[in-house]
Each structure stands twice: as C-alpha cells, then as structure tokens.
Design a protein around this nucleic acid. Structure first.
Length: 862
RNA sequence: GCGGGCGUGGUGAAAUUGGUAGACACGCCAGAUUUAGGUUCUGGUGGCGCAAGCCGUGGGGGUUCAAGUCCCUCCGCCCGCACCA
C-alpha cells in the first residue's frame, strides 16, 4: 500500500457531516432566546416554511441554503440570529392521500414531517429546531382561533352571502387569488360561481395602507411591489346613479336606480347604454320576467370565468328592455343591457357605456348597433370616431356644461354636479376583494364559531379553545367529513344554552401562514405570541422564498400584521423588512421516441457526448431546462445527491455560477464540479510541503479575499463569493509550489475555512479542527474574519493608458501617484509613445490629458 | 393590451456603478503524471489577422476625453396581470 492511499486524500463527508451536525446541536450553536440579548443587534432570517409533501426537492435545498448563508454570516458578524423552521401542515394533499391510500391526514402529515425534518437536518442548516411549529398542531391552530376571534371583535371579520369561486373537483371555495386563468390553482378544474354564506376578512379596509406602504419597502423586489400594487388596484372615478324608467311595469321590485362605477365621468354625455353583469340583481329580475333573459344569464354563468380568454374576442349582450335617464338630462334615456364582459366583482357590477372613448364599449356598440357619440375632440379638433376608441387628451364637445374643458377638468366638474344633485359622488375604487377564508375541507383549522338558531353565529368562548379537529372521521364520501361526524358539531350555544351546531368549515391555509413568523418569536407561548418576543425580533429582516407567493401569502401576511398593529398587539406594521425571491431550479427534460418522459437516472451520456436511454441505448430527445416537475419527470432527489457527494457539495452547487434571483439549471457536471473544488481544498489542507519563500503575497491575497467575500455576501452575490474563494484556493496552490512556508499556508486555509463556513459549513469545521488543534471553538461560534487594513494596501497599481480612448498600454505606479508623474510614466510607455509619435507625424498634437488617479490616463489628440 | 425584467464568448456568468470588457467556473484544445479511470496538475481558449493592429456587450443613433453601464429609438426573449369600466 502506497504512502498516499487515495482514501486518505479524500474528504469523507459521510463521516464528517453527521459529526459536525451533532456538535452544533450539542453546543446549541443556533439556539435563539425568546428575546434577543440586550445590546446585541438582532437579525431575523426566515425562509418560507414548507408544506410537508413528503420529500424535499432541490428548490427547498436552494431556498434554505440561501437562508442559511445569511444566518451563518450574520451570526459570525455578531448578530443575535433567529432562524426558525416549521411546517405549513394543513392542506388538501393530506386529504387526497387519505382518499388514495387510506391513511389519516394527520398520520400522513406527521410521517412526512419526520422524513423531511431529517432530510433538512442532513443538509446542515443552522435552524433553531427548538422553535419548530406545525400549523396542524392544536398548540398552533388554537392560538390562530384566538387571533380570529380578536379580529372578529375588531370588526375585521364578516359573514356574507357572496358569489364565490367554487372548485367542483376539490369541492371547495377558492379565493380570487387562487383562481388562475379561470381554473382552480390546485385542481386545475374550471371554476364555477356559487352563492354561499362565507366567512371573510375585511382586507379591503386596509387597501389604502397596503398600497401606500409598498413605498416603504425598499428591500423588496420591484417586481413584487408592482404586482401587489396592481392587485390592490386603486382607481379614481365616480359612482353614478342612473334612475330607471319604470316603463316595464310588469317587473316586480325593480329598484329605482342602477349605480355604476366609472373612471370617466367626463364622458357621461357620450352615454349609449348601461350594461350589468349576469350576476347583477337586475339581471336576476330580468331573468325572472323573460325566459330569453334567463337563458342568456344561464349561458354567461356556465361560461363562467373559465372561458374568459376565448370570450374576450366576442362581446355578447341581452337587451332587458329597461331604460335609464341621463343624470344630467332627464329627457335623454338609454337602454339597459346584460353583458358578458361586465364583471360583478369589480366596481358595482354595472357600467355605463361610452363607445367613442372605451374600446370594449365600442366593440359592444358595433355588435348591437348602439349609438356612438363622441364627446372628446382630439387636440387638433377632430372629434370623429375612428377604428379605435379615443382615450387620449383633448377637449370636451357635445357635453353641455362640460364643453370646452379638458378631460381632467371635466371629471371634476361632472363629479361636482353629480354630488350637488345627489346623483353620485367621486370615489376611489379598489380592485382588491375581501378575503374569503371559509373552506369546506376537513384538514384545516376549525373556524371557532357556533351557529345558534336564536343567537346567530356565536364565537367559541376563549375558555373552550382550542376547538380541536376530531381525528375519528371518514373519507369514504366526497364533501366535508366534519359535516358527517356523528357528535362533533353538536354543542350547546355558549350564549343561550340551546342546542346549536359548530361551524364545519375550516380556514383557508393562507390564514395559517399569515402569522407564523410572529409565532416563531415565542413558539411555546400560551398566547399567539409574546409581545416582548415580537418586539425583540420583528420584523423579519430577511425573508426568502419563491416569487409564486408574491401576491397571496405576502399580501395576507401584511394585512394580518397591520391589523395586529392597529389592535396594539404587535409593534410593527410590516412583517418583512427585506424580501428576496429566489429563482427556480430547472433541469433538462428527456423524452423517449414513443413520447414517454424519462427521468435523469434513466438517461446515460455516451462516449460521443450524446444522451441515450440507460440500458437500451435508445435515442432520446433532450428538452430545454425547465422547472422540475413530476409530470415531466425531470426531478432530482436531493437525498441521493447528499448520499453521493455530501451536503456541502449540494449547497455549494446551488450557490455557484448563478446569482440567486435567477433560475439555475441543475446539471450533473455542475454538481461534480462543486464536489471537485471541495476535495481540492481538502488536499491543500493535507499538504505537508514546506518552504522559505515570502509569505506576504499570500497574506495580501487572503486579506483581499476577506474583503471580496464579505462584500459579496452582503449583496447576495453568492456566486461572486464562490469565485473569490476559488481565487484564494489558486493563490494557496501557487504558494505551495512557490515554497511559501506551511504555517503561512495553513493560516490562509484557516481564514478560508471561516469564509467558506456559511456556504459549506461541514468542510469548514473539518478544516478548522484539523489545522487549529488548539482551538476548542467551532467556526460556528467564531466571529467573521477581519482583513488587516495594512494588508489591503497595495504598493503598485496598474493604470490603463489610452490614446483617443483606445487602450495602448498599462503602467505600474505607486497608489495615489500625482498627475505629473502619472502622465510622464504614461507618455514613456513604449506602445503609448509610438502611438503618440505616429499621430504627431500626421501633425496632430495632444490637446487634453485626462488623469483619473489610480485608474486611467487618456491622451486626447486633435 | 398593460406592467416588470432581461439581452455580454461555445455555456453559466463577472465588471469597483461612467474608467484595462469577459473575473470565476463549465466545456474545449495541448501537454505532464497516471494509464482501469468520469483522477490530479500545467498552459491555452471572444472574433478576424503571420504580425502591427482592427473589430467586439441584440440593431441603429446620441451624450462624453471615455459607454456593457447614461439618453433616444427599434428588434427579440422571459415573467406577471389581463373584458378592472
């Protein structure tokens, strides 16, 4: 056996990683107090907690690695760090698993949590596991019920008959935010509209605040802020009452007027028609009176929102026969239509149509031959109606008292007149809807309400909380098993004592994730959270997760925090001071000739570089990198990567090459490359060659690396941090070859280990323990290295010399060299001199000499 | 349609924020050591050119001594929202 057996030169992650993980736990390195120590700055790092689906995927690895780099770095920088982890554990997949596999959702969820917890722990993340919470635990959701009741008291909860989005596959209501393109966000089934009594949160009360405060979140991505702003959707306009002519006397209980919302009250004289949504009460009246109207309304509803994209091409309507009077000219009337392009959920569910100045109205008017009256002339005076509706600036015409005004003036004048006449008022309209939180599902937090025939809905008294989800339920039929439970829902009314029933709906799981960040501050509190703990830790300094939560989760969490703030229960109005949205992890997809998707481990690279099916050698088609998905089978199991290469390799790879906000493509070559580099570091550690060369250049390189890595970590440029560490490794390799003493190289390696520690913590500890046998501390306990300023001082700088802006050479000068010296050296540079001579021969001479100290010299020749 | 973002070698990218474009890595080429290696190490690698040099950050134009970076304009790609009155 040779002296350098291969096993001895390889870093063995299989033994090192569990050893260091155990050591961190034993020393409680990542334990945080419920209140950060006084005098020490705090830093709360939070990654969006996972749904316990059963296994971690590489997206999780990336998400938690990013958070862990920040947590470990901030800890080393002297911050008291809170870095918790828990489980967003309620939700539909657990019920589906129950149906498919006969497992109870609780059992399935708990097993998944156990698996995923150990998978995460194997990656060496510095989470404080003593603060772990699961939203399906009564200790958590009981506090959530308490929060709900305080929200109710604060007037933020409403029970209303509302048109809801009904998912016919999942048998539940969906929030607007959960309807994607007319389909359920989870089931993908076309969403229907149903009228149901629902619990809702009055998030619209907070629309102005939620919008304005976006400006105070500079550490949020622009993209997310604009998405939220558009979702909240503020628009200024007017509500206008149109009195109905009661000509159609056959209709019972027709209201006296229709109210519309418009952003263009200036164009009221262009009125051509009124259009109401199919769900509008007036449409119901019309349907009651006329079979044709009923048929049209039914058609619209059947179409639902699912065909919205297709329907957008075709505007369809039905004339109810009703007419309204013009608010400014009672002699003028216009017809009332039911139209498929009017949305019940925006504004008042009714519009006034001004075809000349609104494209949709124009399309509709042309389809049904309705009048088109221009009321805004273009700046050149042309008021004619062209192919497209005119929405630009101009002057009002055909508009009585508004004539001659510009649209902005006319809006104000029209609103003034409406208000004076009691026919409308200027309003701000919001796109944001109230948040429906009832779900007809079992596996969620029970809504703590009792329905009494005499008292109505009654809150469950605090002493009876939590309302525990019963576990003895069956899933043999569709619908909510809580409804069918023999005893659970039957209770006495807390107010009058008469027989009553529990609410059997459960909360939307987005409620669960709207306050977990506060719970993490004091996870064992007998209240939702302790004020001292949230005062100490909130807000979250750095929140990290996928951009798919840009609207739903982040908006609800902001709403909850604001509401709690206004109730005096929490000290911050915004939960997340900094938000980072990471890119996806993608992978090539592979398809066999018959079109079947192949997983990466069913594919093999041939000697000629082509990819073929493993075993059969059949040719395959390689698709571009795209989001990993089970259907395309292009997923990679992080567990297998950790087994083969170790946690540090997986972490290093997801941080390498790409900036974290961008998508990365997972490649076997990239993983192998990360692993090679870590092994290379280990070989440097094992080197025993000694020498007597000057160690100063290596020391300077190390100091520069400290500065470079620090800056990179501060700016989330983790790929750049890795590049800097590669450079230091090369410098140490060069030093070894150049005979730099072993002790100096080991000093550099010890610094390198500390710089690497946030990214590859296990190897870092191994290096540290190997080279500094005197230390009884772990890197996890040590402060961040400081660069000696003296070592950052350079004795020469390279200055570029340009002639007419083109690079002609470089010169070496001491830093801070004065202009005369710099110019002289520049002119003396042979290549520069030659260029200048050549120009002089053409009779051209230097007219200007630019000198930027330590940067550049530029000779400008006329 | 509206909003946001992006466009740099064969590939992923970097660029002190207006000052030497391509750091670092993958890949590729050549060599060394091994030679069972998908090992390790060294050198090379934007394009054209023998060279001096010229060209080069999606295209065009502008500002400037100097532009990947700022301004105008066009093209292309990605993401989000979308009959929002």
């Amino acid at each position: 056996m040779s002296e350098h057996a291969p096993e001895r030169t390889l870093y063995d992650h299989r033994s090192a990683e569990p050893r260091w993980q155990a050591e961190w736990t034993a020393r409680a390195c990542f334990r945080a107090d419920d209140v950060p120590p006084p005098g020490q700055p705090k830093y709360y790092v939070l990654e969006m907690f996972p749904y316990p689906s059963g296994s971690i995927h590489v997206g999780h690895v990336r998400n938690y690695t990013l958070g862990d780099v920040v947590a470990r770095y901030k800890r080393a920088r002297g911050f008291a760090v809170l870095h918790p982890m828990g489980w967003d554990a309620f939700g539909l997949p657990a019920e589906n698993a129950a149906l498919e596999r006969g497992l109870h959702p609780a059992e399935w969820t708990r097993a998944n949590i156990a698996t995923m917890r150990s998978a995460l722990q194997r990656l060496g993340f510095s989470h404080d596991w003593s603060r772990e919470v699961a939203t399906c635990d009564p200790a958590y959701y009981g506090q959530q019920q308490r929060l709900f009741l305080t929200f109710w008291q604060a007037g933020l909860v409403a029970r209303r008959e509302t048109w809801v989005n009904w998912d016919p596959v999942d048998n539940t209501v969906l929030a607007n935010e959960q309807v994607i393109d007319g389909h359920g966000w989870r089931s993908g089934a076309p969403v229907e509209k149903r009228l149901l009594a629902q619990w809702g949160m009055r998030i619209t009360d907070y629309a102005p605040q939620l919008l304005e405060a976006l400006d105070d979140l500079p550490r949020w991505p622009e993209r997310v802020r604009t998405m939220q702003a558009r979702w909240i959707g503020r628009s200024e306009g007017a509500r206008v009452r149109f009195e109905l002519e009661h000509a159609a006397a056959g209709l019972d209980e027709i209201p006296d007027f229709i109210e519309v919302f418009t952003t263009r009250p200036d164009t009221l004289f262009g009125l051509s028609f009124i259009a109401v949504a199919a769900e509008h009460p007036l449409a119901a009246h019309a349907a009651a009176a006329s079979p044709e109207a009923a048929r049209f309304v039914a058609e619209c509803r059947a179409m639902g929102t699912s065909e919205a994209a297709i329907a957008s091409a075709e505007k369809r309507g039905f004339d109810t026969g009703l007419r309204v009077r013009h608010p400014f000219d009672p002699a003028r009337t216009a017809p009332v239509w039911i139209a498929n392009f009017v949305l019940m959920e925006y504004g008042t569910g009714a519009i006034f149509g001004c075809p000349a100045h609104d494209q949709r109205d124009l399309d509709f008017a042309r389809t049904y031959g309705l009048p088109i009256l221009p009321v805004v002339a273009r700046p050149d005076g042309d008021a004619s109606v062209q192919a497209d509706a005119y929405t630009g600036p101009g002057t009002l015409v055909n508009s009585a008292f508004l004539d001659g005004l510009d649209p902005d003036q006319a809006k104000r004048a029209a609103i003034d007149r409406l208000e004076a006449a009691g026919q409308g008022q200027g309003v701000v309209n919001w796109r944001l809807r109230d948040w429906g939180i009832s779900r007809q599902r079992y596996w969620g937090c029970p809504i703590p309400v009792i329905h009494c025939a005499t008292c109505g809905p009654v809150p469950v008294p605090d002493g009876q909380l939590p309302v525990i989800l019963p576990e003895d339920v069956t899933f043999d039929r569709p619908g909510n098993p809580l409804d069918r439970h023999p005893t659970w829902k039957h209770v006495a009314c807390p107010t009058c004592g008469s027989p009553a029933t529990r609410e059997t709906d459960t909360f939307d799981t987005f409620v669960d994730s709207s306050w977990y960040f506060a719970r993490f501050c004091s996870p064992h509190s007998a209240q939702p959270f302790d004020r001292a703990a949230t005062d100490g830790w909130m807000p979250v300094d750095q929140y990290i997760g996928g951009v798919e939560h840009a609207i739903l989760h982040l908006l609800y969490a902001r709403f909850f925090t604001r509401a709690l703030h206004d109730q005096g229960r929490i000290g911050v109005a915004e939960p997340f001071a900094g938000l980072f949205t990471q890119g996806m992890v993608t992978h090539e997809s592979y398809r066999a000739e018959d079109g079947a998707w192949l997983s990466p481990n069913e594919v093999e690279r041939q000697d000629d570089g082509t990819l073929r099916a493993r075993g059969t050698g059949a040719p395959i088609t390689v698709g571009r990198g795209e989001k990993m998905s089970k259907s395309k089978r292009n997923t990679v199991d992080p567990g297998a990567i950790v087994d083969q290469y170790g946690a540090d390799t997986a972490r290093w790879f997801v941080l390498s090459d790409n900036p974290p906000e961008r998508d990365i493509e997972w490649t076997e070559a990239g993983v192998a490359g990360a692993h090679r580099f870590l092994q290379r570091v280990w070989r440097l550690v094992l080197s025993t060659t000694d020498g007597t060369a000057d160690p100063m250049p290596l020391r300077r390189a190390t100091a520069r690396t400290i500065a470079g890595v620090t800056e990179a970590l501060e700016t989330f440029a983790f790929n750049v941090a890795i590049a800097r560490l590669h450079e230091l490794a090369s410098a140490i390799t060069d030093a070894e070859r150049g005979g730099v003493p072993l002790a100096a190289r080991r000093e550099a390696l010890l610094t390198m280990a500390r710089l690497m520690a946030p990214l590859a913590p296990h190897l870092a500890e191994e290096v540290h323990a190997t080279l500094d046998t005197a230390s009884d501390q772990l890197i996890a306990q040590l402060p961040w290295p400081e660069a000696d300023p003296a070592l950052l001082v350079v004795d020469t700088v390279t200055i570029a010399v340009q002639v007419m802006g083109k690079l002609r050479g470089t010169i070496q000068l001491p830093p801070g060299a004065a202009q005369p010296a710099a110019l002289a050296a520049a002119e003396a540079e042979p290549n520069v001199a030659r260029a200048l001579e050549g120009l002089a021969l053409e009779g051209r001479r230097i007219v200007k000499r630019i000198h930027v100290p330590d940067r550049i010299v530029n000779f400008v020749v006329a």
